[in-house]
Amino acid sequence: MRGLLVSALGVLLLAGHARADHNHPVPVKLPLVSMVVGTHLSQTLNEFVTVFSGFVHKKTGSNVQLMQMAGESGMISADYVTQSADDGSVFLFSTHSTQSVNNMLQKTVSYSPEQDLVNVGIIGTSAAALVVPAHSPFRTFSQLLDAIRLNPLDYRIGYYNSTSQVAAGLFNYYAEVNMNVMPYKNRALLLHELAINGIQFAFIDGIFVHDLLKEKKIRVLATTGDIPGIDTNAVELTAKLHPDFVLEGWIGVAAPSKVPDDVVAQMRSVMRDALADPNIKLAMQKTGLKPVDNVCLNIEQFIKHDAERWRKRITLAKITPR
Rank of each mutant, 00 (worst) to 15 (best):
S110M: 06
S110N: 02
S110W: 01
S110T: 03
Y111S: 04
Y111Q: 01
Y111L: 02
Y111C: 10
Y111P: 07
S112N: 14
S112W: 03
S112I: 12
S112Q: 10
S112C: 06
P113W: 11
P113R: 04
E114W: 07
E114P: 03
E114F: 00
E114S: 15
E114R: 14
Q115H: 02
Q115S: 11
Q115M: 03
Q115F: 03
Q115C: 06
D116G: 08
D116W: 06
D116R: 03
D116S: 00
L117N: 15
L117H: 00
V118N: 09
V118K: 12
N119T: 15
V120W: 09
V120A: 14
V120E: 05
V120C: 02
V120M: 03
V120T: 06
V120G: 09
G121D: 11
G121A: 12
G121K: 05
G121W: 01
G121Y: 07
I122P: 04
I122H: 11
I122Q: 00
I123A: 01
I123N: 09
G124A: 14
G124R: 03
T125R: 12
T125H: 10
S126G: 15
S126R: 02
S126K: 10
A127I: 08
A127N: 04
A127C: 05
A128K: 10
A128H: 08
A128W: 08
A129W: 02
A129I: 11
A129N: 04
L130V: 00
L130H: 07
L130W: 02
V131F: 01
V131E: 02
V132M: 10
V132F: 00
V132H: 12
V132E: 13
V132S: 14
P133E: 11
A134C: 03
H135N: 13
H135D: 09
H135A: 09
H135Y: 06
H135K: 14
S136A: 13
P137T: 07
P137F: 01
F138L: 05
F138T: 15
F138E: 03
R139D: 08
R139Y: 08
R139F: 05
R139M: 09
R139N: 05
T140Q: 13
T140A: 07
F141M: 13
F141I: 03
F141Y: 09
F141C: 09
F141P: 12
S142E: 14
S142H: 10
S142T: 08
Q143V: 07
Q143I: 13
L144K: 12
L144W: 06
L144E: 02
L145V: 13
L145F: 01
L145C: 09
D146Y: 14
D146N: 11
D146V: 15
A147N: 09
A147P: 10
A147R: 14
A147V: 02
A147W: 00
A147E: 15
A147F: 11
I148A: 13
I148W: 07
R149N: 04
